[in-house]
Simulated assay, not measured.
Amino acid sequence: MQGTVDGFSYGLITPLVAYLMACLGGALGLRCTTRSMLVAQSWRPGWLALGSAAIGSGIWTMHFIAMTGFTVEETPIRYDKAMTFASLAVAVVMVGIGIFIVGYKGARGTALFTGGTITGLGIASMHYLGMASMRLDGVLEYHTLTVAASVVIAVCAATAALWAAGQVRGLLWSVGASLVMGLAVSGMHYTGMAALRVHLHGTTAPASGDSPAALLAPMLIGPLAFLLLAGVVVMFDPLMVMGRPTVVPVEQKPGIPAHPAVHRDSAHRLQFRPRRTVEHRAPRTPQNR
């Protein structure tokens, strides 16, 4: 028996909230990636790890917020707790690998392609592992070409977002990159859901698993709290808006001490440079000519 699938049982509320969560996680994570390129090597792993956790949490939160609006009319749905947690770990780890590649190798060429591909595959892996955590009296079937299209969407959009994050051009670039990242996650999710068909064996409730209300609501509190904390860390960072170092090095000539540069804002910089020494000579008179 074919199940009647409804992915929008709450209307447009769940897709919009899910997209906003994906954008929030992407904004924080990509901003941390940008920030890592402006610090010393010793601080870079910390910023990249924070960015990986933010993007992974945003992806996971987006997916399961969207899934709260997913129903199969003929049968109740349950979720396996262990596999649901595993999908979060997969998202953080795979996205982290891609971000660390771009963070250390740069957002260009082979490094960008490799990092974007791994990040996109992390988004897709999280989605389909999260779908596998569903328990119902039936089986899930997927249309192969639509699944492949969803993976391509995730890889291309994730690559574009990492490229934008690597430009280090300030807050607006990071906002744009986060919108692209949110589009990657949401587009991949709903394309993957379009590939889904549910073949039911019956209408009884599954023997194992927790209901969406009992499992998803408490589990979403942790990632949401983490995203809030990461947002506070990023917002209070001095380079959040500027996206550039606050100190501009002054060229130092041999034998002349350099003065520190003074930063006014991201668009205007004042540099105090040493004045040239001018030799004052006495006026020429008939006696000293």
Rank of each mutant, 00 (worst) to 15 (best):
M240I: 08
T68G: 00
D137E: 14
S42W: 05
A261K: 01
V232R: 11
M21R: 00
S87F: 04
V232Y: 12
V232D: 04
S133R: 06
T277H: 13
E279I: 11
C156E: 09
T4I: 13
A49R: 10
C156V: 14
P257H: 03
A53M: 15
P254R: 12
V248M: 09
T33S: 13
T119R: 00
T61I: 13
V262D: 01
G51R: 13
A148N: 07
Q41I: 03
T61K: 02
K81A: 14
G98Q: 08
V5E: 11
F100H: 14
G116D: 10
G255L: 01
A82L: 12
W60G: 09
H263F: 11
V147S: 12
H143Y: 05
G166C: 01
V17Q: 06
G209W: 11
L239Y: 04
G255E: 01
M62N: 10
V139W: 03
L50S: 15
A177Y: 06
V233I: 15
D6Y: 02
I55Q: 05
R275K: 11
W163R: 15
A27E: 03
G122F: 02
V151S: 08
T34L: 10
G231E: 07
T110N: 07
S36W: 06
R275H: 07
H259K: 04
S125W: 09
A230T: 11
V90Q: 01
F236W: 12
Q271P: 00
L239I: 07
G255V: 00
G130W: 07
A282I: 07
G69W: 02
A230I: 05
I118L: 15
A165H: 06
L183G: 15
M219D: 05
S42L: 04
Q271N: 06
L12W: 03
L227I: 10
A149G: 07
L48N: 05
S42C: 00
S208I: 11
I101D: 02
C156A: 14
M240Q: 04
L224C: 15
L30Q: 06
V93E: 03
V92F: 03
L112K: 11
P238G: 00
A154P: 08
T246L: 14
A91M: 08
G170D: 12
K105E: 12
E73G: 14
L38E: 06
H127W: 07
N288V: 05
V92N: 01
L227N: 02
T71D: 10
G56P: 13
G25S: 09
V250H: 01
R284L: 13
E141N: 08
V247T: 09
T4P: 00
G51T: 12
V152E: 10
Y190L: 07
G56C: 11
H263V: 00
M126Q: 04
V39N: 02
P218H: 08
F100V: 14
A164R: 05
S266H: 05
M131E: 03
A225R: 07
L200M: 09
G209E: 11
H63A: 11
L136A: 10
G26W: 00
L239K: 05
V278K: 05
Y190R: 02
A258P: 02
